[in-house]
Design a binder for these strands. Structure first.
Lengths: 249, 249
DNA sequence: CAGTGGTCTAGACCACCTC
DNA sequence: AGGTGGTCTAGACCACTGA
């Protein structure tokens, strides 16, 4: 490895600065699972030596990756691969808050899980062939004793081979935590589209509200390294006592 | 001015690094309107000289402020105070997208605007005394010929003294653009809470949908420098042909 | 051309963690 | 004490802009 970085690129149309090349190299190592979620990566000076650049250049590369929540710095200890284990990361991908007071602990209750073949919509969204094997999961998220989110989740079976009710019931982690620990698939980004809809029978039942109740519909496509889509999800949120929280900056 | 920065702070409980002190000084200049939205600020080397630190330290301060969308760097030209004029900034505070195709140009149609006194809710949200003078605006946002958002907006009258229908009709800018150009109030951050509700008579009329239609309710508190709340807004979004777009990262 | 931000380096020292 | 990341400096050179 260790392609030596290009220091000058005058008149090059695809010029990218050294620290960005370093960033791409580190990114490649993450993608290749050289270091897994939660692991320490080599120290800045060690990486600097490995790549033949100064420590400041490595530092700038890591700065960007920390800003993108790919790495986490801890002074005195080292730099770590980000993981969905820590609760901070949990709420980056679940923007639910209680209208009043603190949010009670969440509990995920799987309803059904089955295998199917990708229709046109799912295939397009996940970048699969039509007819490719997928897994579908329905589950309800409770906060305290209240059902708040009814999710329908579509996954490519190729990436989550043995995904099933058994795996889910044996596992108390959040889904994304399990995805990265069991299948080595780490979600790093997601696009969401929010709409208001009337509860149909299935969502009304799951959320214990009357049919026709206005629900917040959240459609999500989640991506792993390389902006590869690996999850499609439709979540119905009961917003009687909760809301979707967002910060604009 | 130019309090000389403190270089060492061993055992100080409120230690903050030099670049953060510089950042606070630049922030104070922004808050004091030493440079207005869209203006160039002094060059990095000039600021370094003014504050008696190295250029790299000023650079790091500006880096953070650029990441927070307070400043905008333009290579070869200088560093500028961010403004709501550029369309990029516009969509940071209006997360609407069309379900299909491009979003047509938006048009804001004011319905009514009147003065009132703050009730308990508004007073608490905006940090005012109960009974303090406020201004209330109702307006509809159209995209193409479709009404999409019905807004009710509460502002402290002290900050927006002559705000009225006349001012609005004479002004084609976005609200936030007008706030910063006419009143010197620049919105830098906002908290939003999203819920699904059934359209009441007022919102149904404004959005030309049947009463009871599920609507996306977006409650926003917007903040200016120093995290001071200066706007409270309730927006009803018709999500038949549009949605609220959010990126999780 | 001069002036701006952008990159890269080398080295010093500080703050924090662990042993 | 020895390692890690965090701060700060000084200086060189590159890339972009506009007169």
């Amino acid at each position: 490895m260790n392609r030596s970085p290009v220091r000058s690129a005058s008149s090059s149309p695809t010029f990218s600065p050294l620290y960005r090349q370093i960033k791409d190299l580190i990114l490649a190592s993450l993608e290749a699972r050289e270091w897994g979620p939660g692991d320490v990566i080599p120290s800045e000076s060690e990486l600097a030596q490995r790549f033949g650049v100064s420590q400041g250049t490595v530092r700038k590369a890591i700065d960007e990756m920390a800003a993108e929540n790919l790495l986490v710095r801890r002074q005195g200890k080292g730099t770590f691969v980000a993981t969905h284990s820590d609760p901070h990361s949990f709420f980056r991908f679940l923007r639910v808050a209680a209208n009043e007071g603190e949010l009670p602990k969440s509990r995920s209750v799987p309803l059904e899980c089955w295998r199917a073949r990708a229709g046109a919509d799912v295939a397009r969204t996940l970048g699969l062939e039509i007819g490719a094997p997928i897994v579908i999961l329905r589950r309800v998220l409770y906060f305290g004793d209240k059902p708040v989110v009814f999710d329908e989740i579509y996954l490519p079976a190729a990436l989550f081979p043995d995904f099933s009710m058994d795996v889910l019931t044996a596992n108390d982690d959040s889904l994304y935590r399990m995805f990265e620990s069991r299948y080595g698939v780490r979600m790093i980004r997601a696009d969401e589209r929010l709409r208001a809809v009337a509860a149909d029978r299935a969502s009304a039942t799951a959320l214990a509200v009357p049919e026709g109740t206005p629900l917040l519909l959240v459609e999500r496509v989640a991506f792993t390294y390389g902006d590869k889509p690996v999850e499609w999800r439709r979540g119905f949120y009961s917003t009687e006592n909760h809301h979707y929280h967002n910060e604009l900056g």
